[in-house]
């Protein structure tokens, strides 16, 4: 789908989270253009390094970043950058975060600790974010339990999603945009 000529506002958004949580899937499901994907086959060299426990069916992994685009309405277009999950690619994150207005942290309750690094980095950068619980099958934890486990403050939105579904992923992004809007309105009131 070509970019509408009415598009006036572009927001750079990053999607972060641990290895195998569904970042690439989310960019692919929601993008209106052919997504750039840097997925590579996981090789035997990664056994013992890339822990696929809990996501044994995973056969590929992102080695640079994903890129996609979605127009939320006539004016607002989001440029989506999916970060790579494994530690050896974290050096890319600083560049990816530069110019970023907001982030989605994807979490998987089977591997919740994997998301701590992403949340720490975003807090350190002062980048606003929302947390999305990517549900693999029947949910086993409530959002409140996840909020407690992640020690998230009450003003960080936390939602459930299915990253494979376009409408669900889009709803997460709308939550983020609304959160950014609320933060910016609050700043205007206080200043």
């Amino acid at each position: 789908m070509p970019l509408r000529s009415s598009a006036t506002t572009g927001l750079k958004i990053v999607i972060v989270g641990g290895f195998g949580v569904g970042k690439t899937t989310m960019v692919k499901s929601v993008s209106e253009i052919r997504p750039l994907s840097t997925e590579e086959t996981m090789t035997r060299a990664g056994i013992g390094v890339d822990d696929a426990q809990g996501v044994e069916a995973k056969s590929t992994t992102t080695v640079a970043f994903d890129f996609g685009r979605i127009s939320l309405n006539d004016e607002l277009v989001l440029y989506l950058f999916g970060a790579p999950g494994q530690e050896r690619f974290w050096f890319l994150w600083d560049r990816l975060f530069s110019g970023t207005l907001g982030a989605v942290v994807l979490v998987d309750t089977r591997r919740l600790a994997d998301s701590w690094y992403a949340i720490d980095r975003l807090e350190h950068h002062g980048t606003p974010f929302v947390v999305a619980h990517n549900q693999f099958g029947e949910p086993t934890h409530t959002l409140d339990q996840i909020r407690d486990a992640l020690d998230l403050s009450g003003d960080v939105p936390l939602v459930a999603c299915d990253a494979r579904r376009r409408e669900s992923s889009k709803a997460v992004l709308i939550t983020l945009v609304n959160h950014l809007h609320a933060l910016s309105s609050a700043r205007q009131v206080t200043s």
Partner: peptide, 9 residues
Amino acid sequence: PPREPQQSS
């Protein structure tokens, strides 16, 4: 070579 499918680390 690729990892075997379903192969846990």
